[in-house]
């Protein structure tokens, strides 16, 4: 049984987030921004920011773990359950991967099984405040047991698929899943 206060292997706690913007800081027009849910689904969906604010259903405290080795403890995350979004879109039988695209053209891939984790979240608020531009406003992914590169910021599309395709960091050799407790840093 794991000590509830333990950090995953190879991680150390630091006071605050280090901000990465590997493809730059995208400009967001919140009036025209939409989250699209598409791919191998029965019901493709589109949400405006206001639509998502109305269906916020989840809040919890969890640590954030960056693959480079730092962690930020006890962050308050608030948003819409990824499982709920998936169930509304009704992914087709055989879907195994979820490809996430962001406004800055960043991409990452998440195993469908992990996407459906009960704590998987489309985050709209961190520590009681709306996401800052640097933290991915208007929406970012967060799945507590996956490394931070799976927590795509500035999300614009969630694409369900049966076929695996590398995202940005996966193409550079990083793991297809990235479970922090299994230390899945590289393929």
């Amino acid at each position: 049984m794991r000590d509830p206060d333990s950090l995953p292997p190879g991680q150390r706690a630091i006071p605050n987030f280090i901000i990465y913007r590997i493809l730059g800081q995208p400009e967001v027009d919140i009036n025209s921004w939409r989250l699209r849910i598409s791919g191998d689904v029965s019901k493709p969906l589109t949400y405006a920011y206001e639509d998502l604010l109305k269906i916020v259903d989840t809040s919890y405290v969890s640590d954030f773990h960056c693959v480079t080795g730092w962690s930020v403890r006890s962050v308050v995350w608030e948003g819409v359950s990824l499982r709920r979004l998936a169930m509304e879109a009704q992914p087709l039988k055989g879907v195994e991967w979820v490809y996430v695209r962001s406004l800055d053209k960043y991409t990452t891939v998440i195993p469908y099984e992990d996407f459906l984790d009960e704590r998987g979240l489309l985050v709209l608020r961190i520590n009681g405040k709306p996401l800052s531009p640097e933290q991915g406003f208007p929406a970012r992914i967060f799945i507590p047991h996956l490394y931070g590169w799976k927590s795509a910021k500035w999300v614009s599309e969630i694409f369900f698929t049966k076929e695996y395709k590398d995202g940005y960091w996966e193409a550079l050799g990083y793991h297809s899943r990235g479970n922090v407790w299994r230390e899945e840093r590289f393929k």
């Binding site: 509830p4 259903d57 405290v61 969890s62 479970n179």
Partner: peptide
Amino acid sequence: MRGFGPRGKNPRDRGSNPRPATT
């Protein structure tokens, strides 16, 4: 609103390593 404690079920118990169809 749904809430969780600081940590949920042990994610290390999750199933086998995902294997991309195209490795």
